[in-house]
Design a binder for these strands. Sequence first.
DNA 1: TCAAATATGTGAAATGCTTCACAAGAAAAT
DNA 2: ATTTTCTTGTGAAGCATTTCACATATTTGA
Lengths: 221, 221
Amino acid sequence: MASDSLPEKKRISESTIHRLSLYYRALSVLEKEGFETVSSKGLAKREKLTPAQVRKDLSFFGSFGTRGLGYPVVELREKISQILGIDRSWRVALVGVGNIGSALVSYKEFQKQGFKIVKLFDNDQRKIGSNHKGIVVSDIKNLANELELDNIEMVVVAVPATVAQYVVDDIVKAGIKAILNFAPVNLKVPDDVFLRNENMSMELEYLSFALVNDHIPKRVR
Amino acid sequence: MASDSLPEKKRISESTIHRLSLYYRALSVLEKEGFETVSSKGLAKREKLTPAQVRKDLSFFGSFGTRGLGYPVVELREKISQILGIDRSWRVALVGVGNIGSALVSYKEFQKQGFKIVKLFDNDQRKIGSNHKGIVVSDIKNLANELELDNIEMVVVAVPATVAQYVVDDIVKAGIKAILNFAPVNLKVPDDVFLRNENMSMELEYLSFALVNDHIPKRVR
DNA sequence: TCAAATATGTGAAATGCTTCACAAGAAAAT
DNA sequence: ATTTTCTTGTGAAGCATTTCACATATTTGA
């Protein structure tokens, strides 16, 4: 009988993905430092995790190590970059060239990881047409159109909370499936659109809670 | 016999604290919109959570609701602000007046929640002495000293990854117990210092992973 | 006043995530 | 060549978090 069951798509936890980012970072440093291999123990220590956790995380995606030796640094870094999809570059647009927005345009870390901000949008006439790091700011009126024309794959939203939903509605209309939102508001998007929120106050609030309650944190996220 | 057992300090999970931030935000909006009460269901809907989760989270800290009616908006917002320790203002210093640092100085959300940036530090002679939003940038050389003199309670680190550890060592020397780090590096601090990391690339990487793997996110953090 | 509807607070069940512990494989040492 | 050491990969156990389900309390409507 020919009926194969579909290959089970394992559910990978959010925490695991975030830790992959940490492993990637650590491996990049190890590579620069000239190490050829690293053990789960060594990797764990660099990011304040446990060796078991490292091994378990990696095991979801395959067997990359050699018993008795550890993991090959370069190879593992490359493998993780494939898993995360950062073994390529992404065309990113940024909406809202204010405080945060401007900072993000110049943020080296994004570029380094292949996230290329290639379009800027704002609704402020004084900003439209101005040049930020070689990119001319477009009028937000043409948002949906231009996102499509320019083959944008991800959009970063850095507009005031009050208008973020309208902006996101436009972005969704353009067929964009990945949005990173810096506005402190819960945005509604269809089920097939990936939305992540970056809430910078949250961690300060966590610190505040920790100080007031003399809370002992278990780990550092 | 007089030996009472110490009052058990329940361990509150990181997730619960982060959700308190969301509840706080939602309640602030509800208050502005004129609502006097809100149910766990209503609150959950605003932040894409479940009613049971809302009730469980709040139950760790007390009983704030009325059966058949819900929670009093103003009172609950105040209560949460007490729990999070944001029913007061915090004296915050920021080290590294670069892209991100400058943006954070002007970031309204921090001020709104009582996090007052009152000191700026940099090592760049061109920046030292310059004025950002009414604050004169100090020389990072005097970091430890000035932090103590000015009764700083939290420090935001927005320096390059390569120097972040040195900066943090100084901050720790000054007796600071709460640090928010924007540098993409794992910093070492003593056990009694609370360190949180804000890694802005991480969420983009998550989006990248989601697009490449057509991953269905369970919730939005 | 009473019934119906609403909504909390919370043990218990279910689910999810992390850590343990060890067999198995590979390298290093003798 | 053989033993010792090292380290992975992974079921299973342990722990933590979320969801369920319902007793209980309050409001609303008739």
